[in-house]
Design a protein around this nucleic acid. Structure first.
Length: 204
DNA sequence: CTACCGATATTCT
DNA sequence: GAATATCGGTAGA
């Protein structure tokens, strides 16, 4: 496993400081029968517990978010809009609920397998968006709570991102949309397109 | 490339 | 009962 103990300490502080450090890092899922897919992260978002109205952890511990209140360096997977799963890395000391959402990346190993999991998608779209990334990697809610030092899902921290890092508002949030806690590698084609939060639907 | 729209069920009030 | 850390299709510039 790459990354010294000192490197992993970055996951034990504030999510907004850990997030840019995750860019360029590798997330690997070794599936027992299907095989291995590795993704180099190009876009992430920080969600910092109680001080962040946009975080699932803002109102305290629940059944869904309890993993975020556990030890850092574990996987938090949630379902959104009733159909998609998205993966986060817990980035806070035990007892504090915070994490970093894996928004996009580049498939650097297991291209064939990733393609088979995302039929019809162009290669650069395989992991372009949080639910797409989770799907290309073969992740679902059953992987919630995975220790990323142990597997089958592992994190390999990079020394530095593959290019200059940019910062801006997060995607799809109505609450706290102005927090500049989205981080991405500037100019990378796998970074997801920006979409503002869906406006409140008119009542019938 | 951007913009809009509908599908979907889990989660929390 | 309402909201949602999204995506794929279609339309248009």
């Amino acid at each position: 496993m790459a990354g010294s103990a000192e490197d992993w300490a970055v996951l034990d502080g504030h999510a907004a400081e850990a997030a840019p450090r995750l860019l360029g890092s590798l997330v690997v899922h070794e599936h027992p029968v299907e095989g291995r897919v590795a993704i180099r992260l190009t876009e992430v978002e920080a969600y910092q517990g109680p001080e962040d109205p946009g975080s699932h952890a803002h109102r305290g511990r629940t059944d869904r978010n309890r993993v975020m209140f556990g030890p850092p360096g574990h996987l938090y997977v949630y379902r959104i809009y009733g159909m998609h799963d998205c993966a986060n890395i817990v980035c806070s000391p035990e007892g504090v609920g915070a994490g970093v959402l894996l928004r996009a990346g580049d498939v650097v190993e297991g291209l064939e397998l990733a393609r088979s999991r995302r039929p019809g998608a162009r290669d650069r779209d395989l992991a372009r968006g949080p639910a797409r990334l989770a799907r290309a990697l073969g992740l679902d809610r059953s992987h919630g709570g995975t220790d990323l030092r142990v597997g089958p899902v592992t994190l390999h921290l990079a020394d530095a991102p593959a290019g200059p890092v940019r910062t801006g508002p997060r995607v799809g949030l109505r609450l706290a949309a102005d927090y500049p806690w989205r981080f991405w590698v500037d100019g990378d084609p796998t970074v997801s397109p920006y979409r503002p939060a869906a406006p409140k639907r008119r009542r019938p």
